[in-house]
Design a protein around this nucleic acid. Structure first.
Lengths: 296, 296
DNA sequence: CCGATCGATACGTACAGCCTATCGATCATG
DNA sequence: CATGATCGATAGGCTGTACGTATCGATCGG
C-alpha cells in the first residue's frame, strides 16, 4: 500500500465517479481503476461497489475512507513537523541561567521576545551554576546557558560564547556603613571590610574573579560569611554581617537595609555571556539570534 | 512522499547504519541512500547527519521519526479497519425489534451470543413496529429487524425474512374469568368476550392477524379497549377490562391477576421473523447467521 | 432501439526504483 | 605513519510498474 492508493481512493470516494476523480488527480481513468483494484486486492476487501452507472462505498469502504483520511493527515503533519522543527519553530529549548541572569532586563526581554516569536517551542529554564552549564551543554542536557564571567570564558572548541552585557560592579552595604555612598570608592577600600560572598561551588567563579580583582588592586579580601543564594547574600549584608560586591544589575533588588555604591576602578566590571554549542539545534540558534539582537 | 520513504527512514533511524538498514529492508544500500536523500529533498529538511563513519539523527529528524512512526501506524490501522469492517467484526449494527421480541428467550440468547462473538460492533437496538421496520431497513435507517407475522411477510425483493420461531397463541384472562384454565379452549370462545388489543398503528399487524383468525373460526371479535404497550395490555386484562390473545412467549410475564390458557385451534399460531436486506452489511450478515443458529 | 455514459480491459511506453561496481572519506592498527 | 577496513555517495544499466491511448461491454434515458 502506498500513499498513491490512499489519495486516489479518497478522491474516488469523494466524487463517486472514476473519470471525474481521475481528472482531479491529473491522471486518466484506466490507471485509477487499476490502482483502486490493486488496493482492494491487497486489503482483500471490496471498498467500492461499482456498476457502469453508479459507484457507491461499501461499509468497509466507508470505514477505510475515514482511516485513509487520518493517515494522509498524519503524513501531512509529519512533513510539517519536520519543516517546523528544522526552522526551529517547534521543539524544546533548554536554557540554563545563573543566579543573576533573571535580574538583567535584557535577558528577560530576550526570553519574552523569543516566546512571542516561537510560541510552539517548549522553553525549559533551569538555574545552573556557570561552569556546570558548560558541562551540561557538552552532555546535551542543556542547549544554551547564561553565565557571568569578566573575560571570555575558556571553552572547548565545539562551544561558542557571546557577550551580551558588560556592566560595572557596585558595593552593597548597610546605609549606616562607613563606605555607603562614598564617592570614588575603590576595590581596595571594599577589601578592607569583611565580605559576604557566594560559596565557591555556587558562585560560578564570580567570587574568585572578585578576589583576583581585589588582590590586583593591592588588597587581601577577608570572608565574613559564605552563602548560596542572592537573597541570603543581600539579607546578611542588610543585617550587618559584612559587605559584598555585586554586578550593577543587582541594584534592581532594593531593600530598606541596603545601599549600593559605585566602584571607581576601571577593572571593576563584569559581563554576562551566552554559551551555546557551535552545532546548535535550530531552536537554540534562533534563541541566540534573538538574544544578541535584543541584548547585544 | 510515499510510504517507502517513511519505512526506509524509520529503519535507518533505528539502525543508524545505512548498510544494515538496507539489509533489513531487503534492498541494497545505494537505493536506500537515494530514497533518504529524495525524502530530505522533498521536505527541504536534513533528517540525518552522516559522515562515512557515523550516522546521527538531526533534531528535525528526531521529530520526523515520531511522526513517521505515527503515520505508518495509522496506515496499518486503516488496513486493519477495512478488513475487520469487511468481516463484520467492526462497525455498527442497528437492530429493530417489536414489543414482544425481548421476551423471547431465543432472541435474547442470540443477541447475547452476538455481543460475545463480535464485541467491537456497536449494537444499536431500537423498538420499532413491524411494518415500520421494513420501511426503516429500506431507508437504511436499520440493518435488521425482528417482527411478528403468522405467515411470511410480504416484502420487496431486496429484503429477506427468516422465520426464527413458531409459537402457539394463548388467551390471557383474570384467574376468575370463566375462560381461565378451560381445557380445549378455542378462538371462537375467546372471540365471544370483549378484547383488549394493541392499537393498529402499534400492533404491527398482530391485531389484524388475530381478528382474521377469529373470523375464520366463525366468530366476530369485539374490542373492549385498545392499548399501546404490553404492560398496559396485560394490566387492563388483570383489571378485568377484557381478555386478550398473545403469543405463548409472553407467558414469561406473570402476574397475580393473570392466567394464560392454551388455545386448541390448529390455526392459533404466530411466528417471529428476522428481516434483513439481501445485500446486508457484513455485521448484519453475521447477526443473521448467529440468530438463525441460536434461535432457528 | 439507439446513442450516451461509464467503468473495465488490452497493450504499449517511459520513468523510477533497484541492482552491481566503484569511489572517496574516515578511522583503527601495527 | 602507512595500510587496510568500514561506510556512505556516486555512476551506469536494467526491470517492473504506473500511466497513457484505444476500445470493449454494460446500463440507462429518450
Amino acid at each position: 500500500m502506498e500513499f498513491r492508493h490512499l489519495r486516489y481512493f479518497v478522491q474516488v470516494a469523494e466524487d463517486l465517479h472514476f473519470a471525474r476523480a481521475a481528472a482531479r488527480l491529473g491522471i486518466s481513468q484506466p490507471p485509477l481503476s487499476q490502482q483502486i483494484r490493486q488496493l482492494e486486492d491487497e486489503l482483500g476487501v471490496r471498498l467500492l461497489d461499482r456498476t457502469s452507472r453508479r459507484v457507491t462505498l461499501t461499509y468497509a469502504g466507508g470505514m477505510f475512507l475515514d482511516a485513509a483520511r487520518r493517515t494522509l493527515a498524519e503524513a501531512d503533519k509529519a512533513a510539517t513537523v519536520a519543516r517546523r522543527a528544522a526552522s526551529g519553530e517547534l521543539g524544546e529549548l533548554r536554557v540554563g541561567f545563573n543566579a543573576s541572569a533573571p535580574f538583567i532586563p535584557q535577558v528577560a526581554a530576550a526570553i519574552h521576545a523569543y516566546r512571542l516569536r516561537y510560541p510552539d517551542v517548549q522553553l525549559a529554564l533551569s538555574e545552573v551554576a556557570g561552569p556546570a552549564q558548560v558541562t551540561a551543554i557538552l552532555a546535551d542536557a542543556l542547549d544554551v546557558g547564561f553565565l557571568r564571567s569578566a573575560a571570555a570564558p575558556a571553552l572547548p572548541p565545539e562551544l561558542t560564547a557571546t557577550r551580551i552585557l558588560r556592566e560595572r560592579l557596585v558595593v552593597a552595604t548597610r546605609p549606616d556603613h562607613p563606605l555607603a555612598g562614598r564617592a570614588g570608592l575603590r576595590l581596595a577600600d571594599a577589601a578592607a571590610h569583611p565580605l559576604v560572598v557566594y560559596a565557591s561551588d555556587r558562585s560560578g567563579g564570580f567570587t574568585e574573579e572578585l578576589f583576583a580583582l581585589m588582590r590586583a588592586s593591592g588588597a587581601e579580601p577577608r570572608i565574613a560569611q559564605t552563602v548560596r543564594e542572592v537573597s541570603t547574600l543581600l539579607g546578611l549584608v542588610a543585617a550587618g554581617v559584612g559587605i559584598t560586591v555585586v554586578a550593577e544589575s543587582l541594584c534592581a533588588l532594593q531593600s530598606a537595609g541596603l545601599v549600593y555604591t559605585s566602584l571607581a576602578d576601571d577593572s571593576a566590571v563584569s559581563a554576562m555571556w551566552l554559551v551555546h554549542a557551535a552545532a546548535s539545534p535550530p531552536a537554540a540558534a534562533n534563541f541566540v539570534a534573538i538574544v544578541t539582537e535584543v541584548a547585544g
